[in-house]
Write a protein that binds this DNA or RNA. Structure first.
Lengths: 148, 148
DNA sequence: CACAACTAAATTGTGTGCAATTGAAAAATG
DNA sequence: CATTTTTCAATTGCACACAATTTAGTTGTG
C-alpha cells in the first residue's frame, strides 16, 4: 500500500539543494558584481586577496578549493585589467605571488555594499545563516574525508 | 579596542560555504559517476528523466534551474551515446521532447547505489540532511525572489 | 487574415572547473 | 653530491553555466 518511495527523487537530494542554491547565489550576485566588473569566482579571489596580499597561486587555490587550472587563467584576466600583479618569488622560483594594485585594492569599497544586500534578501536572520554556514562546512569536510 | 570585524571575510560568507560544498559534492560523485560514464549535471538530468520521460528541454531546464544553452548540448551528448532520444513534438514544433532509450533506463539500476554511499559519507543522519535541504531550498527561493 | 508579440530551442562567446600533462625548480634520498 | 622524487604553475582538452542573439513556430490582436 505504501508508495514505492523512489530513492532517486531529485527533490529529496541534498546534493541538488546545494547545487541549486549555489547557482541561485551566482545569479543573485551577478547584477551586483557587474557593477564592479567581476565574476563571482573573481570576487571570491578578491575576498581572499583583500584579507592577505602576496599569496601564491597555490595558497589562493587552497583557500578557495580550486586548482591552478582554474586560478591561473582567472588571475591572468585580472592582471590584464591591472587589478592584480603577478610576481615570481625570488627565493623559490616555482612560486608566483599575487599582489593587489591600487585599483584592485580600491574595488573593496564598492564591494562593501554586497553583504548588506545579501543580508537583506535573506531576511536578516544572521543566526540562522551562521548555523547553515557551519552545517555546510561540516558537510564539505565529510564529503572530502570520504573521497578514499 | 574591538577588532575591525571585516565584513568581507571569506570564512564568514554563506555564499562561499554553499559554493565550496557544491564543489565537494561534485568531487565526491566523480568516481561514482565515472562508473556510469556520467558527469554530475548529466546525472541530475537522468534523475529527472527516470522520474518522468518525454519532458521538453524547457521543462527539464525548469526543474534543474538551467537554460537551453546548458541543456541542449548536454542532452546532445547523451543522445550521441544513445542514452536518450530527442523528438520534435508534432502538436507544437517548437518543442523538443527527451525520451530515455532502453540503455538510458538501464543506467538507473547502477545509480541506486549512489545515495547509499552519500548517506554513509554523511554519517547517516537523515533528519539533519532533510533540515539542511529544506533550509537550502528556502535560501534559493529567497535569493531568486530578491532578483528584482 | 495580417501582423505584432511571444515562446522554444539552438547557437555564439566568455568564463569557469577539473583531470591530465608538461617543464622548471626545489627537496629528499642514498 | 648526483639522482630521484616532489612541488608548483602553466597548459590542454572537455564539459558545464549563462548572457545575448538567432531562427522557427505559435498565439494574440485588430
Amino acid at each position: 500500500m505504501a508508495k514505492p518511495a523512489n530513492p532517486l527523487r531529485l527533490d529529496s537530494m541534498l546534493c541538488f539543494a546545494v547545487y541549486a542554491a549555489s547557482h541561485a547565489f551566482t545569479r543573485f550576485y551577478k547584477p551586483r558584481l557587474d557593477a564592479l566588473g567581476l565574476t563571482y569566482p573573481q570576487y571570491l579571489a578578491f575576498l581572499v586577496l583583500w584579507e592577505q596580499d602576496g599569496l601564491t597561486v597555490k595558497a589562493l587555490g587552497d583557500k578557495l578549493f580550486l586548482d591552478s587550472g582554474t586560478i591561473t587563467p582567472l588571475i591572468k584576466r585580472l592582471e590584464a585589467r591591472a587589478l592584480v600583479r603577478r610576481q615570481r618569488d625570488v627565493e623559490d622560483e616555482r612560486l608566483v605571488r599575487i599582489f593587489l594594485t591600487d585599483e584592485g585594492r580600491a574595488l573593496r569599497e564598492q564591494a562593501l555594499a554586497i553583504p548588506l544586500q545579501v543580508g537583506e534578501a535573506l531576511g536578516g536572520d544572521v543566526e540562522a545563516g551562521a548555523v547553515m554556514r557551519q552545517g555546510l562546512k561540516q558537510l564539505r569536510e565529510r564529503l572530502d574525508a570520504a573521497l578514499e
